[in-house]
Amino acid sequence: MLKDQRGCKEEQWRRFWNVDRIRLMCKDASTLFVYWEVSSLRKQIISEHFESRWDQLPFYLLLHDVTDMLFEKNVPHSTQVIAVQPDSENWYIHPVLANRSYLIQLCTATKEGEFFSILQSNSVTTPRVASVSDQPSVCFRRPIRQERTVQENAITDVGPYSFPYFGEFDGYTVNFASRGCIHE
């Protein structure tokens, strides 16, 4: 089939969209797929902050097992660190466990070796694989719809809230003398 002008133009393909995103996908019970992209703006300001060229920063994927927990509030059950290159854009992760929830982050590291998250993915749950020792716990119900209600939060309290670096910053002054922050 001869391609007309429209066809040629339409078959051009963009791999990058200048967006910040990382998406974790489940391929099967033991394999995950992740792809990511960092926008030029984010690359620029991260480079500025760490005082390093983007392609000279170290990069890692941190795969967290966040089964039955809120990642923001808890320490993951386990974390797998995978070093990746600055120009990497996707990764297959195998093996992972069945019936576990995972979340992945693209990170760099400070000169002190602390990870710094650049992008954080959605979480996915790998499919469950039944084991022979499964004991059925039976609950029968009528095939009817459930009505769900949404509860909204509201401010209930005003007071002195803490944040993780209160020892270093009290809202006015940064109280540490020599703690380095940037790649020097």
Binding site: S117, Y165, E168, C181
Partner: peptide, 24 residues
């Protein structure tokens, strides 16, 4: 905005992480 962790382990990195979240 939610400030992502890990945040580099110091206040100035935390502030930068806050800025990334604000920008998003």
């Amino acid at each position: 905005v939610r400030v992502q962790k890990p945040d580099g382990g110091s206040f100035l990195h935390w502030v930068f992480q806050l800025n990334l979240a604000m920008l998003d």
